[in-house]
């Protein structure tokens, strides 16, 4: 399980890194957190000839807010997001709910959010959140910088719009307003495996009516998905009272949205211990429950806002 030999460079600037990546005659890999890359190298599924270690590029570890946009630099580690206060507003809550599902503390102290966008594993929590929230991916190439929308970024398992000579420098998210509630629920067999299914949800409510819904689906297709049909079905629905018990009733709009997400939005692939039929079931259930969680979050935010105003 030892990695095969490779050449190793440590650029100090983004242009140096891009120059190193320009060596397209060889199999090149960018090393950021390395928590997927080195794992795959142990499993002998990736054998790069050149590894470009970007960990010593100054400034890539910046997490910043500019207006309504959060910018996550390429070296911001997962662990940063464990605190809901790392990012303002409901987005911070969503990240904090999601990040605890990414492996465990020693992995989260190395692995990076941007690395997840580069790796594009279908079970990545960040990638589905980015897709649902219309994140933008900043990449730097020899010809300069370009920005790719998340919906155009993912081309399939481990396949993205990044060209070999490009470096991802950051991912940008729109911040969420105080009228938005968020939820994230992951379903997996044990703490030490990828999600069978996970769902991220953000519900924006005005005057008790859902005016915007964003639902991200994790591991429900060969790439991260946004459940647009399910979202549409929620627009204009009353938020209603909190759900009693562990699930919304069958005729509840959230349960209905879950069934739509499973039947129309998702394109699940079979895997051991989860065939397509089971996955669709899990998607329907998880979407419904995550919406409940997001609705509860929205209610408590609204209540707090009211309290603050009084």
């Amino acid at each position: 399980m030892k990695p095969a030999a490779f050449d190793y460079v440590v650029p100090r600037t983004v242009p140096e890194a891009v120059a190193a990546l320009g060596d397209t005659g060889r199999k090149v890999q960018v090393l950021a957190g390395g928590q997927s890359l080195i794992l795959e190298m142990h499993l002998q599924r990736i054998r790069p000839e050149l590894v470009v270690d970007i960990n010593r590029i100054a400034g890539l570890d910046r997490l910043s807010v500019d207006g309504d946009t959060l910018r996550v630099g390429a070296l911001v580690r997962h662990g940063v997001f464990e605190s809901a206060r790392a990012v303002p507003g409901p987005l911070g809550t969503l990240f904090a709910r999601a990040v605890v599902n990414i492996a465990h503390p020693p992995i989260r102290s190395r692995g990076t959010m941007v690395g997840s966008f580069a790796w594009a594993h279908p079970a990545s929590e960040w990638c589905a959140i980015g897709t649902a929230l219309d994140a933008d991916i900043e990449v730097q190439g020899p010809a300069g910088r370009r920005v790719v929308a998340a919906r155009d970024w993912f081309h399939g398992p481990y396949r993205t719009a990044r060209r070999p000579e490009e470096l991802i420098t950051a991912v940008r998210f729109p911040l969420l307003g105080d009228d938005t509630g968020v939820g994230f629920i992951e379903h997996r067999r044990t703490h030490f495996c990828f999600a069978q299914v996970a769902v991220a949800a953000a519900l924006t409510v005005r005057d008790g009516v859902i005016c915007e819904a964003r639902i991200g689906l994790v591991n429900c297709a060969d790439r991260p998905l946004r459940a647009r049909a399910a979202e549409q079905a929620l627009i204009g629905k009353e938020l209603g009272p909190p759900v009693d018990g562990y699930r919304p009733p069958e005729d509840h709009p959230f349960a209905h949205a879950g069934r739509i997400a499973a039947a129309r939005d998702a394109a699940p692939l079979a895997e051991p211990y989860a065939d397509v039929e089971y996955k669709r079931q899990a998607i329907a259930v998880l979407v419904g429950r995550t919406l409940c969680q997001a609705a509860n979050d929205q209610r408590s935010r609204a209540a707090q806002l009211k309290g603050d105003q009084q």
């Binding site: 990695p3 190793y8 090393l31 390395g34 928590q35 080195i38 794992l39 142990h42 590894v51 270690d53 960990n55 503390p105 020693p106 992995i107 102290s109 190395r110």
Partner: peptide
């Protein structure tokens, strides 16, 4: 100071 997997880092890092 931070706990990491020593199998998921190269010594040169």
């Amino acid at each position: 100071g931070e706990a990491v997997r020593a199998c998921l880092m190269f010594a040169v890092q």
